[in-house]
Design a binder for these strands. Structure first.
Length: 584
RNA sequence: GGUGGCGUAGUUCAGUUGGUUAGAAUAUCGGCCUGUCACGCCGAGGGUCGCGAGUUCGAGUCUCGUCGUCACCGCCA
């Protein structure tokens, strides 16, 4: 028996008991004739004490100990003569009678403690040591708790958890696929799923009615703090439902998780049309923790002789509450910020609505105080506020103002991590025009159903067609998305047609799905949540890396085991592969 | 594919207009210490300043390239 208790559970009531603990040496405090050892495991830290005079044998053993040694310690629980109120086990200690080293440790490259001295690179390289730290382990415990809450909720709602294949067929739409060569089928490849999309729809055809899966998905695209090449989705599909039914079900799931995991009651989720999100927040994933909406000033500001505005397609503004005292330097910094290539604005016009009711702007030459008063009314500004205006190409400016809005939200401390504001963004466009290839792409995916009232537009103005597609957005993070699916093979054929597939291509790529639909497909709809993002949101973190046990770096590498890596000539031969790596 | 930040002791960092032998903290090792809990005190070892080239009498410092890493844009739902 290695232990009778964990390092986190002994209390003053256990005094006098003989116990055995196993764990890692956190720290040794050698006071000379008396030595204290902090013994750590997942559950906590317990202090061991050795008196040189009374425990000579054990004291001798202490000499070989070092940080992160795994030891087994036996002794008697006793009340401390000087207690530590800061730790749960702080009232007791173990007077050692026996001590054995189960496994020694070399000196670790960084210290295993909450405020570690290790940088990110090093912690990733020794991730198994990083995972010993409370902060990191807590994130993964949270993740496990959340996965449990998902299963509890969906199981009570009669969802069937079903696994779908990981080796599937590559499809042309969407993200780049990871591919896997097939040894048994020379020259042919599997793909790893970007999502189990087609399989879950086939499960609906199969009559499963309600399906879910917490499942790994793979996309071979460039990475970000919130994007990993392999990530986890809560993937779901339901039959005989409309959009409203799906949103209600998964609002229920989300609220259940907030309640179970964080003990937070969130407000009902508002529904916001995609067009409103774009116009008012400059984003399809608005952060509604704060207001500061975008305002279209185009009509108001034109025709006053300011050629920059007169020639612009769109002039928009946001109102930063209480910022009229911003200094020249602060305004300049904001101007430079929006001029960065990532934002790409030409400049920034400001109007200070001073506390005394007067105006000071960078365009005083062209606009009278009366004009500026009108602007202020249009953006709901009151004395003490700062109005920030940008002009240019409409879509670009909505985007830029949206970014500026978030930046001001950050500067003004309006994006509190402890506050959660979920909403549904609905009525996405069905199709997106691509200038390069001169064709439409499905904004969500090719199986998304158009809104019934917009179906006539498919023939006349496909770009205007809205989809029965929806995203769950929380605090400016896209947590999940889904759609009502097309379940009629004629409409599906039409979609493939609009997307530029020939009949043969559609048949080759999705024939089996179209074929399945000929055998009685129920109306169905589904959704998938980005589980990693949801966990990092709950944890109040910016990066999903911190909620994944073994994540990959920016370049998709696992710096711990150095994957990806070349394979042997024999392996290549067996897979019928010849490499043709281009020199840079 | 592109833009930017960072790279100095095991680790986290400092290092002035380019100027003598590159510092601090922490970790490690040794010594002292009976109530510590970030123990304390004394001492020691520890450096390819990421790598390569260039400018210069002289480069940790300036320039170019390269590698690594992070963030963002493109990409991705």
């Amino acid at each position: 028996m290695y232990r009778t208790h964990t390092c986190g559970e002994l209390r003053i009531e256990d005094s006098g008991n003989e116990v055995t603990l196993s764990g890692w040496v956190q720290r040794i405090r050698d006071l000379g004739a008396m030595t204290f050892i902090d013994l750590r495991d997942r559950y906590g830290i317990t202090q061991l004490v050795v008196d040189e005079n009374t425990d000579k044998q054990v004291a001798e053993k202490l000499k070989e100990l070092g940080r992160e040694y795994v030891i087994q310690a036996t002794g008697t629980v006793r009340e401390r003569s000087s207690k530590n109120k800061n730790m749960p086990t702080g009232e007791i200690e173990i007077a050692l009678k026996g001590l054995s080293v189960l496994s020694p440790s070399v000196v670790p490259p960084f210290t295993i403690q909450d405020d570690t001295d290790g940088g990110d690179d090093l912690r990733m390289k020794y991730r198994y040591l990083d995972l010993r730290r409370n902060m990191v382990r807590k994130n993964l415990e949270l993740r496990a708790k959340m996965a449990h809450a998902v299963r509890t909720y969906l199981n009570t709602k009669d969802f069937i958890e079903t696994e779908t294949p990981v080796l599937i067929k590559s499809t042309p739409e969407g993200a780049r696929d990871f591919v896997v060569p097939s040894r048994m089928n020379p020259g042919e490849f599997y793909a790893l799923p970007q999502s189990p999309q087609i399989f879950k729809q086939l499960l609906m055809v199969a009559g499963f009615d309600r399906y879910y899966q917490i499942v790994k998905c793979f996309r071979d695209e460039d990475l970000r703090a919130d994007r990993q090449p392999e990530f986890t989705q809560i993937d779901c599909e339901m039959s005989f439902v409309e959009q409203k039914d799906v949103l209600e079900m998964f609002e229920g799931l989300t609220r259940h998780m907030f309640k179970e995991v964080l003990n937070i009651e969130v407000d009902e989720f508002p529904w916001m049309p995609w067009s409103e999100a774009m116009e008012k927040y400059g984003s399809d994933k608005p952060d509604t923790r704060f207001d500061m909406k975008l305002n279209d000033l185009s009509e108001l500001v034109k025709g006053k002789g300011f050629s920059v505005f007169d020639s612009a397609e769109y002039i928009g503004a946001i109102c930063a509450k209480g910022c009229s005292e911003y200094s020249r330097k602060q305004i300049d910094e904001l101007t430079n910020w929006v001029k960065r290539p990532q934002i790409g604005a030409k400049g920034l016009v400001y109007v200070k609505y001073n506390s005394d009711g007067s105006f000071k702007s960078s365009v005083d030459k062209f606009y009278s105080p009366e004009d500026l008063k009108q602007w202020a009314e249009a953006v709901d500004a009151v004395p003490g506020d700062l109005i920030l205006v940008m002009s240019g190409d409409k879509n670009h400016m909505l985007d830029a103002l949206g970014e500026l809005r978030l930046e001001m939200g950050n500067q003004l401390g309006l994006r509190d991590k402890k506050v959660f504001k979920p909403l549904w963004v609905v009525d996405f466009p069905l199709l997106e025009w691509d200038e390069e290839s001169k064709r439409f792409f499905a904004m969500h995916h090719p199986f998304t159903a158009p809104k019934p009232e917009d179906i006539p537009l498919l023939d006349t103005d496909p770009g205007k067609v809205r989809a029965n597609a929806y995203d769950l957005v929380i605090n400016g993070v896209e947590i999940g998305g889904g759609s009502v699916r097309i379940f009629n093979s004629e409409l599906q054929s039409k979609m493939f047609d609009i997307l530029g597939f020939t009949k043969e291509q559609a048949e080759a790529q999705f024939g089996f799905l179209m074929n399945a639909f000929r055998f009685g497909a129920p109306p169905h709809a589904g959704i998938a949540f980005g589980f990693d993002r949801l966990v990092s949101l709950f944890a109040g973190l910016g990066s999903i890396r911190d909620v994944i046990a073994f994540p990959k770096n920016n370049a998709g590498r696992d710096v711990m085991n150095d994957a990806p890596a070349p394979i042997s000539e024999e392996q290549l031969e067996e897979l019928n592969l010849i490499l043709n790596v281009k020199e840079k």
